[in-house]
């Protein structure tokens, strides 16, 4: 292995590497945020209660919705994202949508191309299925007394959900959501099979053109590691903020406090 080679590769391919980082971040952030939103809907869909008193039409509608949510989450969690990506790619082609034709200006075309869009769709739909489960277990963790407390003050069931239950469920789920985000940073690499130009795809390219495989993949590993560590740190800060604690970016903060006591 050649350390100079690593420096060389970095210097020569800066632009591509940054483009790869940008794609991977777009994929993982968008996938996690929108996936979470869809996951919330999915969770509520799966938790729909069909009541005996509902009239026939409502019953049918509820059953269809609930059934859809259950099937959706089973299918997306039970198949690899790589396979989902391929099916989406060729599925879209089959109905005449060709992502190759999607371009957004010349300058950013390196990042924002059609295959990124396809990748975004896949990673979002895939994440949603997992987030559904994450949200459900978050909801299960909320004390039933919180609902009674809210209802007994006159809050409607919708207000109770939005202002009391969901925030607590998401807070409970935050560590798992952060985990999903980190998984997305790493697993978005499988989208290279549909030519989404994320980080792994870029480094694979660089490795082949420079004939420097080990060096390129070491660079790749270090970049992923930095990204996942930063993501974990960001989530820790968000957790603290949500718990109403003061955030200190001073790395000596804890040390100082211990000395004060």
């Amino acid at each position: 292995m050649n350390f100079n080679k690593i420096g060389e590769i970095l210097a020569e391919n800066q632009e591509f590497i940054w483009a790869g980082i940008a794609s991977t971040l777009i994929l993982s952030i968008f996938g996690t945020v929108v996936g979470l939103f869809l996951g919330i809907l999915l969770a509520y869909g799966k938790l729909i209660k069909v009541k005996e008193l509902d009239n026939g039409f409502v019953k049918v509608l509820k059953n269809i919705l609930k059934g859809f949510c259950i099937v959706y989450s089973t299918v997306f969690r039970g198949t690899p994202m790589m396979v989902q990506a391929l099916i989406f790619k060729y599925g879209f082609q089959a109905i005449g949508v060709n992502f190759e034709n999607f371009f957004f200006g010349s300058m950013v075309s390196n990042v924002l191309n059609g295959w990124l869009i396809c990748g975004l769709i896949v990673i979002t739909l895939n994440t949603a299925a997992y987030m559904g489960e994450v949200v459900i277990s978050g909801l299960n963790g909320v004390d039933l007394g919180q609902v009674e407390g809210a209802r007994s003050l006159g809050l409607s069931s919708r207000q109770t959900s939005m202002s009391v239950i969901l925030p607590q469920a998401l807070r409970n789920a935050l560590p798992t959501i952060g985990n999903e985000f980190i998984v997305n940073i790493k697993d978005s690499s499988v989208l290279n099979v549909i030519a989404t130009t994320e980080l792994y795809y870029r480094l694979k390219d660089i490795a082949a053109t420079n004939y420097a495989f080990l060096e390129s993949y070491l660079i790749l590993a270090v970049i992923y590691l930095i990204m996942t560590l930063l993501a974990a740190l960001a989530f820790k800060l968000v957790e603290k903020k949500l718990d109403g604690k003061k955030i200190s970016l001073n790395p000596f903060g804890r040390l100082l406090r211990r000395n004060e006591v």
Binding site: D143, G145, E148, S152, G154, L155, P167, R171, G244
Partner: peptide, 26 residues
């Protein structure tokens, strides 16, 4: 009805053994 019931619950409210104050806000 549901709407009137919510207003009524503000009139006849309840304090619980387990407090049930909202944990997510101050």
């Amino acid at each position: 009805g549901d709407k009137e019931l919510n207003n009524l619950r503000a009139k006849i409210t309840m304090v619980f053994q387990s407090f049930n104050i909202f944990n997510n806000i101050d």
